[in-house]
């Protein structure tokens, strides 16, 4: 599965992928750890403000990096037939492997967000002294919101060949993670747990719907477009 996902990563994207999947969580952890040490003598409210601000930056950064890595990885899989290897097309399993790679990629993104939010959870638990139960639900909502945002941005961009247009989608798509950010900015005392549960369920349902639609589109593309699009060499005037 990992190999199939890796096979879609474009040649020039290795640094972006590494940055996303390795340096990002480590970077977030390092920043929060160092900040926590410096904030030891500051009062709880101020510490909370600094920590939450950093957490929000980390969430936005995570979404941006993961979407960006998708652009270089799975890329324009719903439109760009030339990005698919002939070896994949000459295998009976090629279509299945591609769909599995996309599903595996969604699971990997889920793991990455979980990792980011686990760090944020412990950071806030240790330095901000928030309620553990509230933090669990807050972070679950954060994972769901971030993953849904990513799914939507990624699937839309997988259907866009223009990089400029994809950048616009990336920019505006980020607003979907706003509820998670607002919740993160609010003091946990004033948030009712049912709001967090409702939002989490809502995001999970949206996430599932987006990915199901995306995978169906991909299967349709494989069936209808994979074996038609390649231009024979030397001819520009294909009908």
């Amino acid at each position: 599965m990992i190999n199939a996902i890796k096979s879609f990563n474009a040649y020039n994207s290795k640094k972006v992928i590494r940055l996303t999947y390795a340096l990002l969580p480590i970077g977030i952890f390092a920043v929060l750890f160092v900040t926590g040490l410096f904030l030891k003598k500051v009062d709880l409210d101020q510490r909370n403000i600094v920590f939450v601000t950093l957490a929000i930056i980390a969430i936005i950064e995570a979404v941006v990096m993961i979407c960006l890595s998708d652009r270089f990885g799975i890329g324009t899989i719903l439109v760009n037939n030339s990005g698919i290897s002939e070896m994949m097309k000459t295998s009976f399993e090629g279509g299945k492997v591609t769909v599995n790679a996309v599903i595996g990629d969604a699971i990997m993104k889920g793991f990455l967000f979980t990792f980011v939010f686990v760090i944020l959870f412990f950071g806030r638990l240790i330095f901000c002294k928030d309620s553990p139960v509230m933090l669990i639900f807050l972070n679950l909502m954060g994972i769901a919101a971030s993953h849904t945002t990513c799914s939507l941005i990624c699937w839309i961009c997988r259907k866009i060949e223009s990089s400029a247009l994809a950048s616009v989608v990336h920019s505006f798509g980020l607003f979907l993670v706003t509820p998670a950010i607002v919740m993160y900015a609010l003091p946990t005392k004033i948030i009712h747990i049912s709001v967090l549960v409702s939002l989490t369920v809502l995001f999970l349902l949206a996430d599932a719907a987006i990915n199901i639609i995306g995978i169906r589109l991909l299967k349709k593309f494989i069936k209808n477009e994979w074996y038609t699009d390649a231009k024979p060499k030397g001819r520009e005037d294909e009908d």
């Binding site: 190999n3 199939a4 890796k6 096979s7 990563n9 474009a10 040649y11 020039n12 030339s82 990005g83 698919i84 290897s85 002939e86 070896m87 994949m88 000459t90 295998s91 009976f92 399993e93 090629g94 492997v97 390649a230 060499k233």
Partner: peptide
């Protein structure tokens, strides 16, 4: 397709793949 071996002139192996990936993907695909 399993009984047919095909090599094309372009895009058979994507340019960013390395030999290890070619081997791993072939194992996965065939």
């Amino acid at each position: 397709l399993e009984r047919i071996g095909f090599t094309g002139t372009k895009n058979y192996l994507l340019p960013h793949w390395n030999g290890n990936q070619v081997r791993e993907l072939s194992e996965m695909l065939f």
